[in-house]
Design a protein around this nucleic acid. Sequence first.
DNA 1: GTGGTCTAGACCACA
DNA 2: GTGGTCTAGACCACG
Lengths: 126, 126, 126, 126
Amino acid sequence: MAITFDHNRPIYLQLKEKMYGDICSGELLPGSRLPSVREMAVQAGVNPNTVSRTYMEMEREGAVESRRGQGTFVTENSDVITSLKKTAAEEETRRLVNVLRQYGYKDDEIINLLKTEIHVKGEQPE
Amino acid sequence: MAITFDHNRPIYLQLKEKMYGDICSGELLPGSRLPSVREMAVQAGVNPNTVSRTYMEMEREGAVESRRGQGTFVTENSDVITSLKKTAAEEETRRLVNVLRQYGYKDDEIINLLKTEIHVKGEQPE
Amino acid sequence: MAITFDHNRPIYLQLKEKMYGDICSGELLPGSRLPSVREMAVQAGVNPNTVSRTYMEMEREGAVESRRGQGTFVTENSDVITSLKKTAAEEETRRLVNVLRQYGYKDDEIINLLKTEIHVKGEQPE
Amino acid sequence: MAITFDHNRPIYLQLKEKMYGDICSGELLPGSRLPSVREMAVQAGVNPNTVSRTYMEMEREGAVESRRGQGTFVTENSDVITSLKKTAAEEETRRLVNVLRQYGYKDDEIINLLKTEIHVKGEQPE
DNA sequence: GTGGTCTAGACCACA
DNA sequence: GTGGTCTAGACCACG
């Protein structure tokens, strides 16, 4: 059950991304309780502090609410998370576009590059 | 001439990207001499150590060649740089795809996101 | 009858504050019996442990007296509660003054800030 | 030089409050560099992680900007910090008012309580 | 049991 | 040198 992380990017961010994905896909329902910090730490194979940081960051963004002594809960308002994901996704995409343009890529070349990359690894990871 | 850097990404990388872009666009010709580390540091408004790191990385990748006492020169073989750019571009693109898939985006959604982002900012950046 | 709690502050404290307020305002008479822990938990919509903690704290402070098998009773001596409230209120006030001074606020600015805050929300809360 | 902290409140918050106070009082100028995480840890007599958390929180709030390898810098726009302080101060004050009203205090009693508390400890702490 | 804070110390990327 | 991340483990407050 241990998630595999890319060691070049912060674990707490990757974990956050995964959880936002899970929330939006319906695996985690609005209002439901997340695994406790310690449970999730075991599941993900990381230190509880790292999970704690993930949860704190999600709370800061308004996606979850932590209640001491009770647990951490997904916000009832799932629009918040959709919106957060959208913003983050756009930011990442913009970043890629900037880099590729810096490299001198034309717009259609960028699109083709993406299409190629998508089809190379045909199946969804998980 | 001072470039504006995004402080959230390594400056040495951004500088490298710009130079590879310049080489491929013909602004920097194969075989030409790069500004000295100190000159470039002043031009770009960054720490000389950062320029040094950029040059070292470019040399390691085979894009430039430093000749003791003479300076640093763009490789005559411009294919090297084209190839480097291609690899880097693919890697960045793959990274984006991974993140977006983690978020639950479908392949066609990813492509649409990119297209939107490209067309939003119609003009090429500086 | 379910009270609305601020999840950023301990619930047992908020409950205690409310009960002390009720006692002083005459809603809870000296010598009267409090709802049982379980009853109060239902009424307030909180965990019985939380009510239990509230009652224990109030007993420790001498505001209530629990009699085995009979329940928990408001002390006959209402001066005790007045005094408790006074101490707590002073402590909270002192804390605010410390924070605001840390921020660099001058004494008269602190007073003005309080006056503004009081008048902004003209009506008494529930 | 070690700062004295109230052990009942998070150190990283108290440190943040102190620094916001220093910035607004002009002890820390806009654009200036803060002590490094390690330096400040020694000065304040706390763990570097705690300082790091303070700085991160301040960055999140837009009061400072951290640049890896360079340091942490006060934002040029000092209005940001003034505004942050104001918001925080109002929130703290509102909180006190709520508690005191819960206790049954009348508006003028609240103001008198504050005035008393201010004059009791006539001199500014440091 | 829960989350929140703090310490200690390591390692890394960056300028 | 700088900040950023992570681990390990402790202690506390809360429900």
